[in-house]
Design a protein around this nucleic acid. Structure first.
Length: 329
DNA sequence: AACGAGCGCAACCGCACTGCT
DNA sequence: CAGCAGTGCGGTTGCGCTCGT
């Protein structure tokens, strides 16, 4: 199996780009564009490079208005918030930060932001090697209270009775809910509300309305109230067999019981102790589809007219809500 | 000064998706 | 509708730099 390589690896140059190569590529694209064919481009301009390599070089470094380094605090916040919300969708995150590339953001996250956010970054005056600063035992949530960089991103101290989540930001929570909600969808039933084991067929518009109301409630409530929020008191909810009525508890339940394999992009919540695996009631091995489907009445991801995918309910605010969530991940 | 470890980042790899034929 | 080529994307790698010993 496997597919043919995009180029003959024996006849292409690899490794760092020389200034001459950069100049060739830049001048050609500035004059002629890419021509919609990266594979053929290097041959046209006499570069012994793979088309993919040319594309990468152009997109990440040669393109006009590219910024490198010097991430601002605001950019940091956006990246963190989005990462928490949607995971490692670097291209989507990059789209929110003009002049930044997905590769740049990815590198920045992996080398700095992640440590910064979770307090693992070595101290400025500390040794460069061998000294793990603020090393965090994964099960010790107390340490997560120490975040010198973004106090507002501190996790809520956990107790069995109190909800905890890492971000006091409504938008992030909403996005996480959406992410989680999308996972409730069956792959091939994008236009149907998915209610595993449901005996109560619900039409899409009802579900969307319910979901929108719930989201609006979350958005307009003080953050501390979000986790004590009660599910909408509708006949629909009341009719649902075993429907939990306490948003906080169920959200906790959901976070704790998430199957890590299905929480792509958020695994770090486990790894960094933000989600306490030991608190999970099912050892993280939950049958996803058996989860109570009524906790978050999320609409499914649906195909949009422009060929992409989007959540069934369009969020109303802010640029971050322009996100689309490809289903295939 | 030499060495080695850690770090940052550019570039590569391979898979998935999309559009065309 | 299937197959293929091109593209996009996220994960990983490898190299050069920095700094402590």
């Amino acid at each position: 199996m496997g597919r043919a390589p995009c180029c003959d690896k024996n006849n292409v140059k690899r490794g760092p780009w020389s200034p001459e190569e950069d100049a060739k590529l830049r001048s050609y694209i500035e004059q002629n564009g890419t021509g919609g064919n990266w594979i053929a481009l290097p041959q046209k301009i006499g570069l012994k490079r793979c088309g993919k390599s040319c594309r990468l070089r152009w997109l990440n470094y040669l393109r006009p208005n590219i910024k490198h380094g010097g991430f601002s605090e605001e950019e940091d916040r956006i990246i963190c918030s989005l990462y928490i919300s949607i995971g490692s969708r670097w291209s989507i995150i990059a789209a929110q930060l003009p002049g930044r590339t997905d590769n740049d953001i990815k590198n920045y996250w992996n080398t700095k932001l992640k440590k910064k956010l979770f307090g693992k970054q070595r101290q400025k005056q500390g040794s460069r090697k061998g000294k793990e600063i603020n090393s965090i035992p994964s099960s010790n949530n107390n340490n997560m209270n120490q975040n010198p960089c973004w106090p507002e991103l501190q996790p809520i101290p956990y107790s069995n009775n109190e909800p905890r989540f890492i971000n006091h930001d409504h938008t992030s929570i909403r996005k996480l809910l959406i992410k989680l909600g999308g996972k409730f969808s069956e792959d091939d039933q994008l236009t149907n509300v998915v209610l595993p084991n449901s005996q109560y067929p619900i039409d899409n518009s009802s579900m969307q309305l319910m979901y929108q109301n719930h989201i609006n409630l979350i958005s307009s409530s003080p953050i501390n109230d979000v986790f004590n929020m009660t599910a909408p008191n509708t006949d629909l909810y009341n009719n649902m067999d075993g429907a939990a009525n306490n948003f906080s508890a169920e959200f906790e339940h959901m976070i704790n019981d998430i199957n890590p394999q299905k929480l792509d992009g958020l695994e770090f919540l486990y790894e960094d102790g933000l989600i306490d695996k030991s608190a999970s009631t099912s050892g993280g091995n939950l049958d996803w589809e058996s989860m109570n489907p009524y906790v978050l009445p999320l609409p499914p991801i649906v195909a949009s007219s422009d060929g992409g995918f989007q959540q069934g309910v369009e969020l109303q605010e802010g640029p971050l809500d322009e996100l689309r969530y490809p289903m295939a991940q």
